[in-house]
Amino acid sequence: MKASNIWKTYLIALPGGLLFDFLNIPIPWILGPVVFVVFAKYFTTLESDTVPVAKNIAFVLLGVQIGLTFSAETFRSIGPYLFPYTILTSAMIALSLLAGLYIATFGTVDKTTALVGSSPGGLSAMIAVSESMKGNSALVTIFHTLRLISVLFIIPFYVTHGTFDGSSTVVASVKGGVNQGSYYTLPLYVVAAFIGWKLRDWIPASLVILPMLFIGSLQTSGVPFYPLPDVLFTLAQFLLGTYLGHTVSLREVISAGKTCIAFFVLAVSMIGIGIGMAFVLSWWTTMDVKTAVLALAPGGLVEMAITAEQTGGEPAIVSSLQTIRLLMIVLLLPWLFKKLRT
């Protein structure tokens, strides 16, 4: 890890966030750094690098940001959505795995790698599953990177520019939606980060999920949190976007060839299926379509919750349902993979 590579990476990422914010592009402080860093690595000799702890800080802050959107109604309101959402997201997972099996049958990738690579789970979690099952983790990383980038660029644009009857296009900022609490609540943010850090080896995406649930639960019980400055949450998105740009390599994607194209088509297809199922979920439960689209998007809990917060969706609902889908994938799919391999 060279200091020069680190500061060059962040300096390249910064104008990306500024430009995308100026152009009113959705989640600009994530997408802008991703685009600028990825293309800088491809067209120049930049060897990107980031501060490892910065990613963890970003995850905690974003978990806090999502948690602060919870209200007393959140946990009650998700009740009617649980069964329909579980049915629909299970169908999406099943379709993804069937497509993965098809790619393995007629392509050049082994069954294990195809199954793990086609699963709409988190990137880090699926890499861990791939390594435990002796799949090709390098290809799994490429396939999930394609899925994540596809979701990041398609879904926010769709919910921002699509037509949704009855959907609000303005949402209050996190800072404005939080009760004006006292300074005594500031240590609770540190406690949330500590819990997420200590359990990071036991719970998937703990640095996001546990602070989110800890802060969200306290807020719904009436704890008036002292509002953190919005610039902290913007910084968290910038750090996350820079990290994602650092991990994505266009050269590796191109080198994967036809198999990579197949998984890209799969990713876009699953996004389309997710949008279609969102209309079913909205009809079934009366959830607004925008929130349903973000809840069923194949991956990206943090990014989809932030998009909901910025575009008039329900970030607490989106994050809660995305967490359920993530836990389903992490807890059940490794067992299912073993059955499908035999």
Score class of each variant (00 low, 15 high):
T259K: 01
G276I: 10
T220L: 07
P227I: 05
A256N: 00
K290A: 02
S221L: 14
F214E: 15
L294F: 04
A278W: 05
L218R: 13
I215P: 15
G274P: 08
T286S: 03
G216R: 14
T259N: 07
F263E: 01
I275L: 04
C260A: 09
D288M: 02
V293A: 02
S249Y: 06
I261N: 00
Q237S: 08
G216P: 15
V248H: 01
T286G: 03
G257R: 02
T234Y: 10
A297G: 11
M287F: 03
V223Q: 11
G222R: 09
L244G: 08
L235Y: 12
T259A: 02
I275S: 08
T242Y: 11
L244K: 07
G216L: 10
A278R: 06
M277N: 14
A295P: 05
Q219T: 11
A267K: 07
I254L: 04
V293P: 03
M277P: 03
V289Y: 00
T242Q: 08
F225S: 06
W284C: 01
I215M: 13
L244S: 09
F263V: 09
G222T: 10
L232Y: 13
L294Q: 00
F263P: 03
K258F: 02
G216K: 14
S217F: 13
I271F: 05
T291P: 03
I271D: 11
T247Y: 10
M277D: 12
L235I: 15
M277L: 15
F238W: 11
